[in-house]
């Protein structure tokens, strides 16, 4: 299809090389564009440092403040550490999710993504990847901070698996809600209100899984929680994929 377009320009910009486009689409092309969107967000973050830094600073603050709040009344840090971990992830995550489409909206760049010859779910998955990197990175910071501040052995493979799956489900829902709320009035305060009640299964499964592992439970004791997290991830990635195109059909 590209061959018909390769007419070289003439005149002052004659030097422009003809455009060669990869023919056809297919999965490989789709994945390349998903990665292009994700890489663009990650690179912009490397240059601007607007999102990740505030997420991590907020999360460390949250862990410390929870520590102070519980210090006097809770006999064992182990009892509150799972809750602190997951509440901090959810709250810090909102900061990044708000910027995900908020930045495109503020700078008016969303039409550029919509003009591209690709299924618009590529925008969704690209943003999911970028948001996942930010949120999971923040979650790791929270894990380490909680480990030191509460002196609780959170750095265990099963907890990592839980945080990984929980974060994926969180950004799967969070990215589509961010796209929904981006054009609404007061989007910054709206997003957490939309997001948190829907995230209750992830929150409960995450807290329960972490608590069970801290109490010495093994894989067999947390399979139902891992099941909830995997089920949540799958359901929302699929439903979001089906619905996302309709969000951006007219902006």
């Amino acid at each position: 299809m590209a061959t018909t377009m390769a007419t070289p320009l003439s005149g002052p910009i004659q030097a422009l090389p003809p455009v060669q486009m990869r023919a056809g689409g297919g999965l490989a092309s789709f994945l390349r564009k998903v990665w292009a969107v994700a890489a663009k967000d990650l690179r912009a973050e490397l240059r601007g440092r607007e999102v990740f830094s505030s997420m991590t600073v907020f999360s460390v603050l949250a862990v410390l403040i929870f520590g102070m709040a519980f210090d006097l009344r809770v006999p064992e840090a182990k009892m509150v550490a799972p809750g602190v971990l997951w509440v901090s992830i959810l709250f810090a995550g909102v900061l990044g999710l708000n910027r995900s489409f908020g930045a495109e909206m503020d700078r008016g760049t969303l039409p550029a993504l919509l003009l591209a010859p690709m299924d618009r779910s590529a925008i969704y998955f690209g943003k999911v990847i970028a948001n996942f990197v930010f949120t999971f990175g923040t979650a790791l910071v929270i894990l380490v901070a909680t480990f030191f501040v509460y002196d609780v052995d959170l750095l265990q493979p099963l907890i990592f698996a839980g945080v990984l799956l929980g974060t994926l489900g969180y950004v799967a829902v969070g990215t589509i809600f961010a796209a929904l709320s981006a054009s609404a009035r007061a989007r910054e305060s709206l997003l957490p209100i939309l997001l948190l009640p829907v995230m209750v299964p992830v929150f409960m499964a995450g807290v329960a899984l972490t608590a069970v592992v801290l109490d010495g439970g093994g894989l067999a004791d947390v399979t139902n929680w891992l099941g909830i997290l995997i089920g949540f991830d799958l359901i929302f990635l699929i439903v979001a994929y089906l619905l996302f195109d309709m969000i951006l059909e007219e902006v």
Binding site: P201, M204, I235, V239
Partner: peptide
């Protein structure tokens, strides 16, 4: 639609 999808999962996890 999205909100409704989370209700059964909320019930089971609760």
């Amino acid at each position: 639609i999205l909100a409704f999808s989370s209700v059964p999962l909320t019930f089971f996890s609760a």
